[in-house]
């Protein structure tokens, strides 16, 4: 297994990842282009935020990285190793213990008939991290304390319905931590939580990054939380990654018209609601079934040009650490 990626600090590198889902009944010839040619890198101890509206392909992207669904095309380099070549059929136990997933809905991701202890002990047993009743129990309590669920022995004995949404999401995080992963894929971990407890969960993720050097891919539709926690922000639209870079740069110098539209749409108490508004890009996300060539945003873009309807622009670096896929920046 030869290291392919020369970049030493990268833990995960995605190259040209694509996912098509066949649709139709008999001859399944039509394709939903859920994710198209997505590339990005996650460095050690970094949080990469994937931002996009529903249907933009964020979740499909991380499900492919987690190897829950097969990849149509593309490469996943994990610690320099091409995972799809090394483990083409399914991910090894080793990969799974290094890459963990947190789901959006803490009400659906825990099994109602098992205690919290059962949920946390299972990964420990499967991955051989602990054995024997006492050792397992101690590890479970440690995990609960890491995610600030105290008193831990009491919480361990409870069932999911006896916990609040925020507590459940912390259990999900503890479950992911059980196997000492190096990369955690978090799929909208706070969007179903009450607003007053969201920051607590985000801060927990931030602390795990700082203290344990765990890398995160954080999925969200909320730009503000992406900026809050993300070192890097990648913006997705209709299956394509249209812009990416250091989070501060992307937020303050957004280059892609779609990113600008998203930013303008975020409620801003300082500005008030403008009825005149520059928010003129009406319409909604196009259908992903056999999409036409060109930029997916062309139909809504206020600065659309002829070339946009024919060719998908290539990524172009606008400044160090900031790239965009948009023809507006083609001739720089």
């Amino acid at each position: 297994m030869n290291p392919i990626s020369p970049e030493p600090s990268s833990i995960l590198e995605i190259r040209g990842m694509t996912k098509y889902f066949p649709v139709g009944v008999l001859n399944r010839t039509r394709q939903v282009h859920a994710v198209e040619d997505v590339s990005f890198t996650v460095r050690r101890g970094q949080v990469v935020a994937l931002v996009g509206e529903s249907g933009s392909g964020k979740t499909t992207t991380i499900r492919m990285i987690a190897r829950l669904i097969p990849v149509t095309r593309g490469e996943i380099l994990f610690k320099g190793q091409d995972i799809l070549k090394a483990e083409p059929r399914q991910a090894s136990l080793e990969y799974r213990h290094q890459v963990q997933l947190i789901f959006q809905d803490p009400f659906a991701s825990l099994n109602a008939v098992h205690t919290i202890e059962h949920h946390l002990a299972r990964p420990l047993i499967i991955h051989g991290k602990a054995s024997g009743r006492q050792e397992l129990h101690d590890r479970v309590c440690d995990l609960l304390e890491t995610v600030e669920l105290k008193p831990s022995p009491e919480i361990a004995a409870r069932y999911p319905h006896q916990l609040s949404g925020g507590q459940r999401q912390r259990v999900s995080i503890a479950r992911a931590l059980a196997v000492d992963p190096e990369l955690i894929l978090a799929d909208e971990p706070i969007s179903m939580l009450d607003v007053s407890i969201r920051m607590g969960v985000l801060n927990l993720i931030g602390r795990l990054k700082e203290q344990r050097g765990i890398s995160f891919v954080y999925i969200t539709h909320d730009l503000a939380s992406a900026r809050y926690i993300g070192d890097q922000i990648m913006v997705m639209y209709a299956g394509h990654m249209v812009e990416g870079g250091d989070s501060e740069t992307v937020m303050s110098e957004a280059a892609h018209p779609y990113t600008q539209l998203l930013l303008a749409a975020v409620p801003n108490p300082h500005a008030g609601l403008k009825t005149d508004a520059q928010l003129q890009a009406r319409g909604e996300v196009p259908s992903l079934i056999d999409p036409p060539p060109g930029c997916p945003f062309a139909a809504r873009c206020t600065r659309v040009m002829d070339v946009c309807r024919q060719v998908m622009p290539e990524p172009l670096t606008v400044r160090p650490g900031h790239w965009v896929r948009c023809h507006l920046y083609g001739k720089m």
Binding site: S164, G165, G166, Q167, D194, V195, S196, I197, R198, M199, G200, N203, L223, A224, S225, R227, Y228, E248, M251, S252, L263, V266, N268, H270
Partner: peptide
Amino acid sequence: LGLMNSFPSITGPKHKLAGIPGSP
């Protein structure tokens, strides 16, 4: 105040937001 402290902003300086401890 706690609620205000639960919404990160897209502009301005970035500072740590505490949210509100505990649950409803």
